Amino acid sequence: MGRTLERVGDTWSLMILRDALQGLTRFDQFEKSLGVAPNILTRRLSALVEDGFLERRPYQQRPVRHEYVPTDLARDFAPVMTALMAFGNRHYAVEGAATQIVEAASGRVVEPVMVDRDTGLSIDDPRFTVAAGPAAGEATRARLAQVAARRPEGELP
């Protein structure tokens, strides 16, 4: 989680990615949409390009101007953005949702959930837990062992 937050954990980066994934690609479009200072926008766009979320491509030669196009990495991150939006709508949008996911054909509002690809079970099912991965260090293994030890006896998993 920390590695991802290092790259996209600030508000401006997330909002730029949101706009890019929704089809905005040009500096002036981001600037107008976000109301962000040009120097901040330049830094965040450069970082998103450097971290592989956006690709910088020229779209005009005289003068040279660039657009910022989402990469496969950004598209893979899109469900995370959807989860953040849904969470915010549930917990912070007391005035109502500003944006929401709908079924295109009917306009029916949908509630996104995360599921296991193989079983279709919701990831918050008690049969799932966080476990140490192959690269886990001792601190991670100790933390997860402590969490497991606090789980009531007989409780899944």
Results as ranks from 00 to 15, higher is better:
L17K: 01
T99G: 04
L45N: 00
L121G: 08
A78M: 13
A78V: 09
V115N: 03
P157H: 05
F30I: 01
L5F: 12
G52Q: 06
G120H: 02
L144T: 10
Q100R: 15
A132P: 02
L45W: 00
Y68M: 02
V80H: 02
N89C: 09
M15V: 07
G35S: 10
L14N: 02
D118K: 11
D116T: 09
A149G: 11
M85P: 00
G23V: 02
L54Q: 01
L5C: 05
E111V: 11
E6Y: 09
K32W: 07
Q61G: 06
D118F: 07
A47E: 04
S122F: 08
S33V: 02
P79V: 09
Q60S: 15
T99Y: 11
Y68P: 00
Y92D: 12
A104G: 06
L84W: 04
A78H: 10
D10A: 09
R143N: 11
R56E: 15
A47T: 09
T129W: 07
G107E: 08
Q60W: 12
E6T: 12
P157C: 05
R143A: 15
D28C: 07
H66Q: 05
R127H: 06
P152N: 09
A139F: 08
A97K: 04
D125N: 14
A105T: 15
F30P: 00
E155Y: 10
D118T: 14
V64M: 11
W12Q: 05
T82S: 07
F27I: 04
R44W: 01
T11L: 08
E95S: 13
E50L: 13
G9Y: 03
F87S: 07
R26C: 03
V80P: 00
G35F: 05
D125Y: 07
Y59W: 15
P58T: 15
A148Y: 09
R18C: 04
A131D: 13
Q60C: 11
L84G: 04
A20C: 06
A93P: 03
G35E: 04
F53K: 00
T71L: 03
I16F: 01
E95P: 03
A83P: 01
P152E: 10
V109L: 12
I101A: 07
A148M: 13
D51W: 05
R75K: 15
V147Q: 12
V49P: 00
S46R: 13
A145N: 10
G9H: 04
R56W: 06
A148Q: 14
G2D: 14
R62C: 07
L21E: 00
E31Q: 06
S13Y: 02
R43C: 04
P112V: 03
T119D: 01
T119R: 01
A149N: 09
K32A: 14
Q61V: 12
E67M: 12
